[in-house]
Nucleic acid binder design. Structure first.
Lengths: 196, 196, 196, 196
DNA sequence: AATGAATGAGGCTTCATTCAT
DNA sequence: CATGAATGAAGCCTCATTCAT
């Protein structure tokens, strides 16, 4: 019972911390502000996380776990690879609406070298499943897709998805693709990249 | 004469600052270390840049300028769009070898929602030319390429290029594509995405 | 009955607190650790002691009381002064084996200008009997001892005793005197200092 | 030149720090207050000392060095042991008047186990010369003194000296010996302890 | 023009103390 | 009575920035 409450409290703090870290970055984030936003005292955070770094890494870890959960659900479904891809893509756009902070933090480390705790973060990201990659590999094995680099293509599609999320981009950096056009466009691109 | 020296000095400082910012991020970067690495006194930096933020933004500005220069050179050449694309791609891989710091800083703002000075950096990036986008648009106009979203496709190819630069990625995050395979693979992908 | 239990509880806490204070000093001591070592909750300590300072002072007070009890026993015995001195000395070495924490705390205030709560501690130490001093004064009165400063000599002997307790000294600071040699050496010194 | 100034600055800070540490102990001392008392900014202290602990240990080290200098001077003089002892004793009382902070800090670690950085402090105190011990040993060798434990006797005399410094004692703890009586009394005691 | 010694705002972290259960 | 989760004051330390030389 107590342990469950502890866990819930940690999750609450992580939720708030994710917002702060996503908005201001690791160094810009302020433990005190996180506490205030979480409606608790500064010291309370230290009951649940040993240091700011710890809080950050546990936040990253929580994101990885959440992503993996979703990946597992989709990958294990009884669908053909293309339908699975579509589902993953839809799920990402759902995340954009529901968990933009998580998505920001994830993308900051998913793509490109980031200077905050590279080793530790890399270790955590080792556990992150890449459903697009897995599905494409599966499709190639089944003979439904064709590409010389399935994994790279998976990451590549991922970057296209992210590119079409205005909230993850610099303002005005990437031209608007109408919301309802995004998924068809991505699927069309997938087809081009993976057709036999 | 004096002004020329001033300009050279600024460029030298920016060169060093780019290394520091690329390696440690904005907050992690240390003005004193930049001074030491530049072989000058800490105070001297403040003769050329009002604040650390200023130095950072001017560094970003310098990168944008340098990139634009190269873009201008290539775009204005008398080549067909596909050959231009190839040249841009080759130039990026050349940058990877010669100016990794610039590339890191550029990619951090090009592809990541980076939390440092988003408005100011966005303003600077507004001036950044996107040669891939321009060339693809040109190719579409000339009827040599076909794609519903030329600009997005330009950014998309860009992200593929970056993805194949191990130095810009988390360690072990993206599978190795042999160096001599990279450009052919990218060009092949370009063809798939832009073929009529 | 309840009050008796209260008293016993206080004594238990003080016992543990003495260990912690002796080992880590006042500031280094940790209320939570004291609670854990005492097998009670942190809040419980505050049912018995208003503040950490209070706990410290009551610990000192307890030590003074315990020492006084022993002093009273010995001083009131029907022995000649020299035998009493010997008994006191033996008692101190017994304390070294059985109550090293008490001894450490006592000696820290008996011999060192210790910066924690000097006034309050001084007030408590006013009540501390100095059996060596008393006995020497008695001996001088009875004409068995001779010294111009009986009290100082008492303290002086005390410091010799403490000096021969390795556990109270900096590691390796004072050369070893074999355990069985200590009391004879002290008594010999006493004779030198007090002989007529 | 610059290095000399640096050294002088360090010494100035140590001078002030010694006062603060002597008065309030390590934990009670406040870096900011030390800075204010030294008439400098808080950050300046950190130009000369890496941490508060470092400042403390360097303060202890400075005390040890100063004491050693005096010891060397006296021990190497061409006097007989008894006259040297007298000189050492006089020097200590001179220190009492001129460097009470140093004396307080020294005595806090010279006598008895102290909880602040015991290992590091012990290492520094290993270098502290004990002139009384040295002189007594010399006297024993020359056949002028007689005692089974020359070193212990040296420490013992030392504790008598300290005991007669009211400023190092709890208020009212040790009875007053008139200032002009102190040295004769100590010398008399020395004679008793060391006579053949 | 160039320097680097000095500064102090700001942020992380600890821990004695409180109080709702 | 007893608890321990929660608090926030307090203090160490960093580092961008200043300014006297």
């Amino acid at each position: 019972m107590k342990i469950i409450n502890q866990k819930r409290k940690k999750e609450e703090i992580i939720e708030v911390a994710a917002r702060e870290f996503a908005e201001k970055g690791y160094d810009g984030a302020n433990i005190n502000e996180i506490a205030i936003m979480a409606g608790i005292g500064k010291g309370t955070i230290y009951l649940y996380f040993k240091t700011k770094k710890d809080l950050y890494l546990e936040t990253i870890r929580a994101i990885v776990d959440r992503f993996n959960e979703m990946s597992e659900q989709i990958v294990s479904m009884d669908l053909n690879p293309f339908e699975k891809l579509k589902l993953v893509i839809e799920t990402f756009f759902q995340l954009e609406r529901e968990s933009i902070s998580y998505l920001k933090l994830w993308s900051r480390h998913q793509f490109q070298h980031n200077p905050v705790f590279p080793e530790e973060v890399s270790k955590i990201f080792k556990d992150l499943r890449q459903p697009l990659c897995e599905i494409i590999e599966e499709g190639v094995e089944k003979g439904e897709f064709s590409t010389p680099y399935p994994t790279v293509t998976g990451y590549f599609i991922l970057s296209l998805i992210v590119m079409l999320m205005p909230n993850l981009q610099r303002p005005n950096s990437v031209p608007l693709v109408q919301e309802e056009e995004r998924i068809p466009f991505i699927l069309d691109t997938v087809r081009k990249l993976l057709q036999k």
